[in-house]
Amino acid sequence: MTAVRYTVTAEAAGAVLAALRRCDGQLTWNQARRLMHELRLGVNGIVCIDEGRRVQAGDVLEVRQRPFPPVPGDEDVRILWLDALVVVAAKPAGMLSVRHPGDRDWSEERKRQQPSLEESLGRLIRRREGGSGAVERRGGRPSGARTQRGLAAPGGVAATDSGLLAVHRIDRETSGILVFARTEESQQFLIHQFAAHTVLRRYLCVVPGQMSMQTLRSRQVRDRGDGLRGSTDDQSVEGLDMVTHVKPLRRFEGYTELECRLETGRTNQIRIQLSELGYPLCGDVKYRGPFGGAVVEDTSGAPGLALHAAELGFRHPGTKEQLSWQLPWPSGMLRWLDRLSRGQ
C-alpha cells in the first residue's frame, strides 16, 4: 500500500484540494481533482470525496496508488437495539458519528455522499417503523435485558422519526458501538451517566511492542504545538483529565492487542495517551509518537486504524436496568489479526 503523506500545517489549512496543492507544490487542480475522483485521496486514513471538506493543522493528507475502501453507507450500519427511548448501533470505520453543526445545511445529495451515523440511523429507523409511529424493541438482545415492547417515553411523549439526540461520539476512523437518545429526557439521563463515569466503555486496539497492564493518567492539552491535541503529566497545566485502564489481551511477534477501559472520554484519548508513551496505534496516520520525539513508523499493514469500541453498557433511561452490548472486531481487522498471530 504505497502512499505519500503530508501533515497539514497552519499555513496550508483550508479546503482539502487547495491544502493538498500547497503541501505537494506541484499538483495542478485537475490532477488533484482526479485523485479525489479515483478515491485515491484520504484525510487521516479515510477516503475523501468532498471538495468542500476543510482540513486543519495536524490533519494528514494521504495519496495512494490504489483506491481507498469505498465510503460506508446505510447498508454498513447495524442497529443493535431500538426502542422509544434509545437506539444502539454499530458504526463502521470511516463514518462520522454526528455531522458538524456547520455542515448541517448541506444538500441532501451532498450528505448522502458521505453520511453520518446519525443520518443513516434516521433512515434505517424510518424503514423499520414504516412511518407508523409504532415502536418496539428491535435487534439483538443485550446482556441483562428483558424484552420491552411498546416502551413509551416519559410523560407519554414518543420520539419522532428523525429525533436522534447525540450522547457521545467516537472518531470517524474508529469502528464500534454508540448510543443515541430519542427523547430529551433520555439524552439527559444518559449524559449524566457519562459525566459520572458509570458507563462501561471497553475498546480494543493494537500497538507495536510489548505493553504491560497499567492505568494511564494525564491531562489533555488542546494544542501540543503542532495543531494536534496532546497530553501532559504536569497537573499545573490547564486541561481535562484523561484516565484509561489498559490490559494486554494477546501478544504477537512485535505487537500487543490491548483492552482499554475508559474512565474519562476525551477526544482521541486512547490514541493520544498511547502515542505519547511511544506505543502509537497500528494504522494511525495522525499520532505516531510523542510530540517532539522520533516518529514511530507503522509497518503493521493494518487495513485501518486498529481501534474498536467493543463494548458499551449503561442504565436504560426507561427501565433503569443495566444493559450492555458487545461487538467483535470488523472482519477486515480479524483477518489482519489472524495474519499477525501467524507472524505474517
Rank of each mutant, 00 (worst) to 15 (best):
Y6L: 04
T7P: 07
T9F: 04
E11F: 03
A13H: 07
A13R: 12
A15S: 09
T28Q: 08
N30Q: 14
R33Q: 10
V43F: 12
V43P: 08
V43H: 10
V43W: 09
G45Q: 07
G45I: 07
C48K: 03
R53A: 13
Q56S: 09
A57V: 04
D59K: 09
D59Q: 08
E62R: 11
Q65L: 05
P70L: 15
E75T: 12
D76C: 01
V77N: 06
R78P: 03
L80Y: 12
W81T: 07
W81P: 07
D83W: 13
D83T: 10
L85Y: 02
K91A: 07
A93F: 10
G94I: 11
M95T: 03
D103G: 00
D103Y: 02
R110I: 10
R110M: 13
R112Q: 03
E118A: 12
R126P: 02
S132F: 03
E136M: 08
E136W: 13
E136Q: 11
R137K: 09
R137T: 12
R138F: 15
R141T: 10
A145R: 07
Q148K: 13
G155W: 15
G156A: 08
D161F: 11
V167M: 00
H168E: 14
H168S: 14
D171V: 00
D171K: 01
D171I: 00
R172H: 01
T174C: 15
I177C: 05
L178I: 15
V179W: 08
A181H: 11
R182N: 08
R182A: 09
E184Y: 14
S186Q: 01
S186M: 00
L190R: 05
Q193M: 10
A196V: 12
Y203E: 11
L204C: 15
Q210L: 12
M211G: 02
S212V: 11
L216S: 01
R217L: 07
D223K: 00
D223A: 03
R224D: 00
D226G: 03
R229E: 03
T232F: 00
D233L: 05
V237G: 00
D241P: 10
M242P: 09
M242L: 11
T256L: 06
E259D: 05
I272Y: 00
L277I: 06
L281A: 08
K286N: 01
Y287F: 06
V295L: 14
V296K: 14
V296G: 14
V296W: 14
T299K: 05
G301I: 10
H308N: 08
G313H: 04
P317Q: 05
E321D: 15
L323H: 07
W325V: 06
P328G: 06
S331Q: 15
L334E: 15
D338K: 09
D338A: 13
Q344I: 15
